[in-house]
Simulated scan of single mutants.
Amino acid sequence: MAAVPTPALAKAPRIAVVDYCKGNLMSVERGLRRAGADAFVTADVREIARADAIVLPGVGAFADAAATMRETGQMAAVRERIAAGVPFLGICLGLHLMFDEGAEGTDFEDGKVDNAHGLAVLPGVALAMPRVDDQGKCYKVPHVGWNSVDYVSEAETPLLASIPSGEYFYFTHSFVAPDTPCTVATTTHSISFPSVVSYRDTAFGVQFHPEKSSDAGMILLENFVGIVQTAKGA
């Protein structure tokens, strides 16, 4: 794929990469800059509120990330921006945090699960990936490596423009998001799980890491930057 010229930063959309003490922030920032954005890492809710778009990356436990976001005010700030239609992209743990709750890193007392609360943009609970499928076949968890992303319908999603169904992306995770009507693509590893979700065509989540997914990942990031540019010009 030919490199896409990066526009002057003064004209590029400003995309906040949220720093909540989890994840590969610098590689996500670099990927977005290569895709044509004026991307910057920030933990400041005022910067998040002013940005043209928000990216929530992450590698870590749901409960720890959610606690940090609540304490810093990031949870409320990001939720408000998504509700306002500001473009949003959640990556890996960032996808899980779009849901009501997550079981990862939570405490168990009296046999009851005390799940952590997420952004609640989408309904459901992010749960651990099973190590055995319905036929009893064992799978290695965490799921690490390249796997295909298969569309659930022919409906076009702007985030996936010019990316064919069945394209391979790089995954590393042991928890998965629940299936909802917002699931637009799935991947299979012991179970079929959502690998791309789309909420109102402005808020998206991906289970894989586009910043580590070679040409296909760069196309996806360019698509997201294009979505932000369109929203900014509207």
Rank of each mutant, 00 (worst) to 15 (best):
A103R: 15
E104S: 14
G105M: 11
G105L: 13
E109N: 15
D110N: 15
G111F: 06
K112L: 13
K112N: 11
V113T: 11
D114Q: 15
N115A: 15
A116Q: 03
A116C: 12
G118D: 11
G124C: 08
G124F: 02
V125H: 05
A126S: 13
L127M: 08
A128R: 12
M129V: 01
M129P: 05
M129R: 11
R131I: 00
V132D: 12
V132Y: 06
Q135F: 00
K137F: 05
C138I: 13
C138L: 14
C138V: 15
Y139H: 09
P142Y: 14
P142V: 07
H143K: 07
V144S: 03
W146R: 03
N147R: 07
D150A: 09
S153M: 00
A155V: 07
A155Q: 15
T157N: 12
P158T: 02
S162W: 00
I163C: 06
I163L: 13
I163R: 11
S165P: 09
G166D: 07
E167Y: 01
F169M: 07
Y170C: 05
T172M: 05
H173G: 05
F175W: 15
P178E: 04
D179W: 13
T180G: 08
P181Y: 01
T183G: 01
A185G: 10
A185Q: 09
T186R: 04
T187K: 05
H189C: 06
S192Q: 10
P194H: 05
P194L: 06
P194N: 02
P194V: 01
V196I: 13
S198M: 10
S198Y: 09
Y199Q: 07
Y199I: 07
R200E: 11
R200P: 09
D201C: 00
A203C: 14
H209T: 10
H209F: 09
E211P: 03
E211W: 00
E211G: 03
S214W: 00
G217M: 00
L221D: 04
L221C: 08
N223A: 09
